[in-house]
Design a protein around this nucleic acid. Structure first.
Lengths: 190, 190, 190, 190
DNA sequence: AATGAATGAGAGTTCATTCAT
DNA sequence: CATGAATGAACTCTCATTCAT
């Protein structure tokens, strides 16, 4: 890490966060060690504590940032085909190295009030974003108007959560996807 | 542990498993210690290792047994109102002290092939059981026949998984239930 | 440590306490490490935590025990020559490996309420014990009755504390003793 | 630190020492961190090492300086009432934020030869200063001439040391002072 | 078979000190 | 000369597992 760069500190923090995401994703939060993270960053263990006050602090920060990056579906996917967008979201989830972490954080929220609040806020934000997108699609005529946008968002979210669970327990990717797309279409068709 | 009882070995194993379920449910697998389990059984730490070769081994066994106890919905709830049965399953999940554990085990399955296999098998069994129950209900005329039982089972399972997630992150019980029942009815009504 | 001995656990605790006193006395509380203590006992680090929940817990126990061993001067030294007894107490202090520890504990009491309470209680007990002994000596005619026993005890205690300080900063033993005895005699003679 | 001032090097050193005294007094030597000292000086941690080669070096210097500032009681308090002066010294000690540090340094002297020498020198200087003051008071007739100035100084020093100890272990300020003044008067009256 | 004391590897964390900038 | 990011050794403490009894 050269210190010539302006905003060096922000970059260093970011490097640590990136490395931590990587290690957390591979080993889980509890399985990961500060040693591994340090090694991943290419830095000594002590340095981590220059930027974060604890392992949990790193996780908190990761989660805060991730909660701020919730997609504004309506604007991001404006005018796109609905199913196509859902497929894209599906792909993003599958590729996400953080699938495991996102489940672990649900557990951690039992003992970490900050994480809990973030999880709640994120869950609601995602739901809301999806709902607004659906309403937009309904206005465009891409989605039937007799379906309640709220409930549709909720049901689709359920499918996403369950897909994540299925993938994590190692069910066959293709099968999972196939059943998911069938379910989605069944819900929308009716 | 008295040795008068025949098969006391099996009983001892069973006692340990029951106690472990209790402790795992309360503290999670990682949060639980062998000390706590031993205390819960009323036995020494060393004894646990007479019956199980490791903490993970205990979890494996618990999970094997739980996978063998998947409800045969069709026969258990024969002739009952469909929504009523779904409500009952919902209640069982909410009351389940093992909500946390069931999520934790998904994570553990990443590094434990045995658990992974069990999870896969259980997931499929539950889905199948639900599907068969739905088909039965369709034969009874309680559920519309134009809905695909397979997909319906998949969608409902998704809702259950997501409800579990919502409860774990601490969303309001009543709200979660209300949105769930609305979603279920919306799916079935169509 | 053989486990055949009855009261084995008490002996083990005692061994750890003895070793800790030794190490604390040599290195001070902060300077001492659990590693050293373990090595001194001839046991692994983890074992220390079987018997005490923390390093501070060990110190607390040492201090509790030491506070319970305050000499009942009146009965212990009944009928003995006053100066001779004071000399003996002086000798005990000098030989005490805990001289350094007793000073360190004064500092630790700033952040350890339990130690603070013990220190206060011990200080008062010692003073009281000395006072009662003095009164006894006055009844025997070994000490002038016109001296207030309370104040005499206080003054002598001050001399002891200061002697400890002088010895700790490395002043010459003989000189310190000589000045101390002169002071004591001056106080009593008058 | 501006370099315009001539001798700014000496000023810088002095600033660091002042800040260190403040921090050491509040947290003790071991409790204080270089970070805190640096912050107190308003300078970076690294700068401390430009002026002092270690944390201990700072303490050494502080102690050297303090040993050079021992009150010349005879001239400072010339002609004042003896008890009044003793009271003033008492007040200075009580108000001294360095009460804790002065005890801690006694312990540090066990492993720091330089500090040890300073402590010895300081102890003797204070004693000598007190003795000379007493002799002066005896010449003025304020203190009885049949009391040996040397021993009186020693006894009074003992009382001061013990008062410090009593205050550090948290005994009640008023009580400590009351018993101290009674002891002093008892010694002088005779 | 049952015990629980002992183990020991390894965890997160702290901080005086160093040194590239 | 000043900086403060980086270091790394050392710390206390945890706990699944072992094994002498």
């Amino acid at each position: 890490m050269t210190r010539v760069v302006p905003d060096y500190k922000e970059i260093a923090r970011s490097n640590i966060l990136q490395a931590s995401i990587k290690v957390f994703s591979k080993k889980g939060f509890h399985g990961a060690t500060m040693n591994e993270i340090a090694k991943e960053v290419g830095v000594s263990k002590g340095t981590l504590y220059t930027y974060f006050k604890s392992k949990e602090d790193i996780l908190n920060e990761i989660w805060v940032l991730s909660s701020q990056n919730i997609l504004d579906l309506k604007n991001t996917y404006k005018g796109r085909d609905f199913i196509e967008v859902l497929e894209e979201l599906y792909a993003m989830m599958v590729e996400s190295t953080g699938l495991q972490l996102s489940f672990e954080v649900i557990l951690i929220s039992q003992q970490n009030e900050k994480i809990k609040k973030i999880n709640q806020k994120s869950y609601k934000s995602k739901l809301e974003s999806l709902k607004i997108f659906i309403q937009d699609q309904q206005d465009n005529g891409s989605v039937r108007k007799d379906l309640d946008a709220d409930l549709l968002a909720q049901i689709l979210t359920g499918l996403y959560t369950d897909v994540a669970a299925q993938l994590l327990i190692g069910l066959d990717n293709e099968e999972v996807h196939e059943k998911w797309i069938k379910s989605v279409k069944a819900i929308l068709k009716q």
